[in-house]
Design a binder for these strands. Sequence first.
DNA 1: ACATTATATAATCATATACTTATATACGCA
DNA 2: TGCGTATATAAGTATATGATTATATAATGT
Lengths: 115, 115
Amino acid sequence: MNESEVVELYKASQIFKLLGDKTRLTMMKLLQTHDCCVCEFVEIFKMSQPAISQHLRKLRDVGLVKEERRGQWIFYSINNEHEDYPFVQSILNHLPEQNGLVVELEEQGLRISCN
Amino acid sequence: MNESEVVELYKASQIFKLLGDKTRLTMMKLLQTHDCCVCEFVEIFKMSQPAISQHLRKLRDVGLVKEERRGQWIFYSINNEHEDYPFVQSILNHLPEQNGLVVELEEQGLRISCN
DNA sequence: ACATTATATAATCATATACTTATATACGCA
DNA sequence: TGCGTATATAAGTATATGATTATATAATGT
């Protein structure tokens, strides 16, 4: 156990509360390998845009993810400066890849890319 | 990453939902090192007996803990036969020891021991 | 400037959650 | 057998959560 990955118990429970929702947990796993914008998540999860925004806000409020505007889109990514980033990564590493969801998007031509 | 510790995503989110409560998370951490009975948890958490029982039931319903009657008491312990036991352990290992809570109990003479 | 697209936020609502109180069950002991 | 202790469960309640609908804000392209 790397000392930097020891997490105060209450903070851990707050993180687990966030990850205790299948949608948010899948978002985090996806963000591990792909930055995504809101409209991509809307497609992937077949959920309304406000529902997606609200999940992202919860993740952002505790600093697990960060946002960055790119043109018309706002892309979300893992915040690797979060104090418990190593802990969260070590958890996500136990979960199976969800890249199939992104591949589907690409096949539908719905993947957003901008530079 | 040990293959045996890869956990299906929905199941992981269900486990996190359970661990997303400070009381239950602390229970799990304590059980990592000490079997405990309900009345000990009542003392440790300063919560009502039904509240404690209900938290333990949730943990037991998904098989994270098991119970065993010892005389008048029912002791709870980690269920090391749970399919995701290695995953849960690896998570708990990131949390600081909570043994101080048990030591306090012992100092008050409230620790139950029976054989 | 205006229409379109992407996103956030506010208000609302149904359901889930975590507690309380009241009660039932099970064991140990006189 | 009856009493005290330990625990579980049921019912009720307040709050939290996750969705929806409606609306506001911001960027793009004409």
